[in-house]
């Protein structure tokens, strides 16, 4: 090893030691960029798995699902979940343009989550007043978490899929401080429900 090489190694070793000594200070001052910011939003069946979702719905029978949110947005976030109910002709949210459904919510949940935190809730629901008249079905009220909500929806008989279909869906909204209001977070989950006649 030449003298110059030896000197270079010595200087590098000293610089390395210097960086180690300064690392606590540098760690406090230099903020490294975080990863991708996103929120998870899911609905699970009654067995807490992605299966056995309620589908064939009978009047006055209770069903349950699990609704969950995970925050990976870096920092505390203020979320709101809007519960909406539609028939097949009414609009769904548009995930391409990031716009919510134009329907009014029938119910809402509100939560605050820190980075990495998860919120999960057992949502129980049933339907009161399902009336069948020829080719159509009228659903008058939805009972969600013991709260009776008037929905008054008509579903026409779907020849292709043989049933009277409605959809219970959940939209995730997030508070945006720069506009001082909630914005659709482009996340939504849904349950297809086939309203069945009593036997």
């Amino acid at each position: 090893m030449s003298f110059d090489d030896f000197r270079l190694i010595y200087v590098l070793a000293c610089l390395g030691l210097g960086l180690i000594i300064l690392s606590p200070t540098l760690g406090m001052v230099i903020k490294l960029p975080g990863g991708e910011q996103f929120s998870e939003f899911w609905v699970l069946g009654p067995g807490h798995m992605a299966e056995d979702y309620p589908f064939n719905i009978a009047e006055d029978q209770a069903y349950k699902v699990f609704l969950g949110i995970a925050n990976h947005m870096i920092g505390l976030q203020y979320y709101r979940v809007y519960v909406k109910f539609r028939n097949q002709t009414e609009p769904l949210p548009d995930s391409v343009n990031g716009t919510p459904s134009a329907l009014d919510p029938v119910f809402e949940y509100c939560m605050f989550l820190r980075d990495g935190e998860v919120w999960e809730k057992e949502v129980s629901f049933s339907f009161d007043g399902i009336f069948f008249e020829g080719n159509s079905c009228r659903v008058s009220s939805l009972v969600l978490d013991d709260c009776i909500l008037s929905v008054d929806k008509f579903a026409l008989y779907d020849e292709e899929d043989s049933g009277f279909y409605c959809q219970l869906f959940f939209e995730l909204w997030i508070y945006n401080a720069s506009v001082s209001g909630f914005q659709f977070h482009n996340r939504f989950v849904w349950l297809w429900l086939n309203m069945t006649r009593p036997n």
């Binding site: 505390l76 119910f107 809402e108 949940y109 509100c110 939560m111 605050f112 709260c147 909500l149």
Partner: peptide
């Protein structure tokens, strides 16, 4: 350490959601 304040926020959030739900009905 904002744990206590967060508890208050969560409680208030539940109240507001319930208030909005009551208003809707």
């Amino acid at each position: 350490n904002v744990s206590e304040l967060l508890n208050k926020l969560e409680f208030a959030g539940d109240l507001l959601a319930e208030a909005n739900n009551s208003y809707r009905v």
